[in-house]
């Protein structure tokens, strides 16, 4: 089971069921938000067609403080499959690149957030995720498409990812600081954890 849905339908744990439903809704909202951001990114003019800002990863960065690892995995899968369906790449190699990069970056960002969260802002987390995502995509490109020649374009590719991830991290910092929606969820989550407080 991907999310903590084993509580659903158990009468004595109505609160948990409600919380589970609420989590599922928030996952679906953030997954939809991710699709929306990928549409926004599509409309932004880019100097190089394959250059990506990675705006669609913002909901995953936001989700780090809201969800457990299985829930984040579900959010990432929804993002990947949703984008695959919208862009029509679900059954292509491009889907493989998207899935590899997104899953690897989510796992690394989760590890950094969990282990070093107190010492790192969203900027550091975003940089870590982008670098790992780009490395995984370069490895996939090495084995599937380009062969060893791919490492010739690795430095500018990684540099571009590094720069865009800084902007994404800044945006995540500002969004989590300003958003009433996000802070409302955090507030309710805290209340749920400590009902007596």
């Amino acid at each position: 089971m991907l999310f903590s849905d084993n509580t659903a339908g158990i009468g004595s744990t109505g609160l948990k069921t409600k919380r589970t439903q609420s989590i599922i809704t928030h996952i679906a909202i953030l997954a939809a938000f991710s699709l929306f951001l990928s549409t926004v990114e599509y409309m932004i003019p880019k100097p190089v067609p394959f250059m990506r800002i990675g705006l669609a990863n913002l909901p995953i960065i936001i989700g780090l403080s809201l969800f457990s690892l299985p829930e984040l995995l579900l959010l990432t899968l929804l993002k990947i499959v949703g984008q695959g369906l919208v862009n029509g790449t679900l059954f292509s190699y491009i889907f493989l690149f998207s899935a590899g990069g997104s899953l690897a970056s989510m796992l690394v960002m989760y590890a950094v957030y969990t282990l070093l969260g107190r010492f790192t802002s969203y900027i550091g987390i975003s940089i870590a995720g982008a670098i790992v995502s780009n490395i995984v995509q370069l490895l996939l490109a090495h084995f599937i498409l380009f062969g060893s020649s791919i490492w010739m374009i690795a430095p500018p590719f990684l540099l571009m990812g590094f720069i865009t991830s800084i902007f994404l991290g800044i945006f995540a910092n500002v969004f989590t600081g300003k958003s009433r929606w996000y802070n409302g969820i955090i507030g309710r989550k805290e209340e749920g954890r400590h009902p007596d407080e």
């Binding site: 909202i29 939809a32 699709l35 929804l78 695959g84 369906l85 790449t89 059954f91």
Partner: peptide, 26 residues
């Protein structure tokens, strides 16, 4: 892949339901 998803496939199971919900929100 573009051809395969052109019929707006509905994925089965709970994941499919969640995906439909995602598209409604989108």
């Amino acid at each position: 892949s573009q051809y395969m998803v052109s019929g707006k496939p509905k994925l089965p199971g709970r994941f499919g339901q969640l995906l439909s919900k995602q598209f409604l929100f989108f």
